[in-house]
Write a protein that binds this DNA or RNA. Structure first.
Lengths: 151, 151
DNA sequence: CAAAATTAAATTGTGCGCAAGTTAATTTTG
DNA sequence: CAAAATTAACTTGCGCACAATTTAATTTTG
């Protein structure tokens, strides 16, 4: 067997790259979500924050960042906008004044019921069954873990 | 059979979302590419432009945009930076002065040989075989096509 | 052929996403 | 317990990504 598998000329073609397929589908998801989220004045990353808060309300910026894979440089201004739009409140943690707790307002909580509709729309748009989507999702999780493994 | 499949409480959980799996792996790829591309002073989208040009040199901004799924609002400043860094030239098309032709400089052409090394590094980092990567890539292409299908 | 419509790039404005640096609170340690 | 180290959040700066607008060139049409 070959120790150095051949790299054909078009190994560098865009269409061959897994990374470009990922890049493209990420943008496609964004485009698909946009009209659905525009109705609520939300961006896609803001929607991800709400998804996290609907699972566990009242968490710190740090915890939110760990769950989403974002740092405070991204989250701080994003949360400010979510607060200005009336979806969340931000309060200093009394027991540790370094931390800021993010919690849903009534408006933020109410939006959760709308999210199920969005979920269905997106599910339809993907064109794959719940099982296919789940399998693909798991494969992507594995890939993410591999890529984030320290070299 | 159910016409309305049940939506369990945690159907909204971040970990359940295919879109979030895509979002996460896209960022993971970016993080993985960064140190490899930093050596050449390139960003990931700039690298994608070079991949396209290595396949077909001397194409218009429009063609590049179609291949990458980007508009001139993104490409114009990006190409300006690639030009300032000496990787590409931009020249007005003599036969249609609306168009701008993007072509590789010698420096841009020379970089292609380095790209094979990057390809290998990324391949290793994904932790999947060429076959697995190919299958995943094709599944993602299908998904992109579905999402971009007019509703 | 001249007016209208279309097309390609570029520009402007907003919002991520990340690196690097700042500030303030807490924890560690010597 | 005071100095040093760590931590959380914020801020600044840069580069996408995209919508909307502008400008100039080309094509369509009346």
């Amino acid at each position: 067997m070959d120790t150095k598998p051949p790299l054909p000329e078009d190994a560098l073609a865009l269409g061959q790259q897994l990374c470009f397929a990922v890049y493209s589908v990420a943008h496609a998801f964004n485009r698909t979500y946009k009209p659905l989220l525009d109705r609520f004045g939300l961006t896609y990353p803001q929607y991800l924050v709400l998804l996290a808060l609907w699972q566990t309300d009242g968490i710190t910026v740090k915890t939110l960042g760990t769950q989403l894979g974002l740092d405070s440089g991204t989250l701080s201004p994003l949360l400010k906008r979510l607060e200005a739009a009336g979806f969340v409140d931000r309060t200093r943690d009394r027991s540790d004044e370094r931390q800021v707790l993010v919690s849903l307002t009534q408006k933020g909580q109410d939006l959760k019921s709308e999210a199920f509709g969005i979920l269905m729309e997106i599910g339809k748009a993907t064109g794959c069954s719940r099982e296919e989507a789940g399998a693909l999702r798991d494969a992507l999780h594995d890939l993410t873990q591999h890529l984030d493994r320290p070299a």
